[in-house]
């Protein structure tokens, strides 16, 4: 059994427009991969397709998570199987408290008839909130309702820490964060790094990768991975711009 998140020849469309055009990459457990790419290259589409968003139609390919094809599972089944997406734009759910939301998510992972231990749950949640410098008042507040951009992103990381996925995709988690919030979020992610877990960090800017240092960097353009390298690739991109990659491609083609 392979221990990786392996995307192979993934094609996906929105309303008959193909966005992902045969994308392949593999994230072995224990590694952090980054995807960088210009706006419109399909980065966010990739994250939503993996999570199972219904606006996207997968026309070919597989997304194997430890040999299970995510594409065969319902949205909630993917999550319970160990997949996690930190949203670029987390939704607001008025009237549903953060604590109840997390509890319901954890409860959904238990066998029927088994109940969450409330005391242990709160203890665990408070410890993780402290690590993210989140005020405890957030437990009683409605999910993301009236949260600032930074608070929403921290809340995504809190959810990831509580759900302890096997593989996590962070979709532009750095956007809208000031440097202090960025450091806190990155610290939260780094604490989660382990030989038992893989990460895919999607970002437009190299800045985040100063704090979450990737093992592998992929460059995405027009729905495909066009270049793969080490962490120094991110720096090179930052220096030379995305045009450099696309021009280089044009030359080799």
């Amino acid at each position: 059994m392979s221990q990786s998140l392996k995307i192979e020849n993934l094609h996906a469309s929105v309303e008959d427009t193909e966005i992902l055009k045969g994308l392949s990459l593999e994230i072995p457990k224990g590694e952090v991969h980054a995807i960088m790419g210009p706006n419109g290259s399909g980065k966010s589409t990739l994250s939503k397709v993996m999570a199972g968003h219904e606006d996207y139609e997968v026309t070919a390919g597989t997304v194997l998570m430890d040999d299970v094809d995510l594409l065969d599972l319902e949205i909630d089944e993917r999550s319970r199987a160990g997949f996690f997406l930190a949203f670029q734009y987390p939704h607001e759910i008025p009237g549903v408290s953060n604590a109840n939301f997390l509890r319901a998510a954890l409860q959904a992972r238990l066998p029927k008839g088994e109940e969450i231990d409330a005391v242990a749950f709160y203890k665990d949640m408070y410890a993780k909130m402290d690590a993210l410098s989140m005020d405890r008042k957030f437990t009683g507040r409605s999910v993301n309702d009236g949260f600032s951009g930074g608070e929403k992103k921290r809340n995504e990381i809190l959810q990831m820490m509580m759900l302890e996925p096997k593989y996590a995709v962070l979709d532009e988690t750095d956007s809208g964060l000031d440097i202090d919030a960025l450091k806190i979020v990155a610290e939260g992610v780094n604490r989660m790094r382990s030989p038992e877990r893989g990460f895919l960090v999607i970002t437009h800017y190299q800045r985040l990768l100063d704090y979450i240092v990737p093992d592998v960097v992929h460059v995405m353009s027009d729905g495909q991975i066009v270049k793969t390298g080490g962490k120094e690739l991110a720096l090179e991109l930052e220096e030379k711009g995305y045009d450099w990659v696309t021009e280089e491609l044009a030359v080799t083609a």
Partner: peptide, 11 residues
């Protein structure tokens, strides 16, 4: 609904 489902909560 997608957001909650993506956290493992059935539709």
């Amino acid at each position: 609904i997608f957001y909650l489902q993506a956290r493992g909560i059935p539709a």
